[in-house]
């Protein structure tokens, strides 16, 4: 067996650090315009400055309020007014939750192979 240069634990920790910087810091520099799906959904409608539909026909017309909402809705944090801190912190929480749920679930269902050699 070849011995990898970087240990798995170090690789995962380093990868999580990169994800944390991206979600916690770089996310504040993201382009805030609607994404591809959102802009196609809005095509044909007019919007006021509060982003409410004022007329026209578009896919977004029937969009309803999100079923759950919650304190982290829209990648912000309820009660934190500073958008930079709210976005960064919600991103960090998201990375932590996703790794905890994903990593935990995959660890639980992994198959255990008897150690070779």
């Amino acid at each position: 067996m070849s011995r990898p240069k970087v240990k798995l634990f170090a690789f995962i920790a380093g990868g999580l650090l990169v994800a944390a910087v991206l979600a916690g810091v770089v996310s504040n520099f993201a382009y805030s315009a609607p994404d591809g799906l959102d802009s196609v959904s809005r095509e044909g409608c007019t919007f006021d400055e509060n982003d409410e539909i004022t007329g026209g026909e578009c896919m977004a017309k029937t969009a309803r309020e999100h079923e759950v909402g919650g304190p982290l809705a829209d990648y912000a944090i309820k009660g934190i007014d500073n958008p930079v801190i709210a976005t960064g912190l919600s991103g960090l929480i998201g990375v932590a939750i996703t790794f905890a749920i994903g990593g935990g679930a995959f660890w639980l269902v992994r198959h255990r192979r008897p150690k070779d050699a």
Partner: peptide, 20 residues
């Protein structure tokens, strides 16, 4: 692969926030 898959999920979450 299990911890790697957890990292991939967390990384995708992070990069999805980065609208270009």
């Amino acid at each position: 692969l299990a911890p790697m898959a957890g990292l991939v999920a967390a990384f995708i979450f992070a990069v999805q926030m980065l609208n270009f």
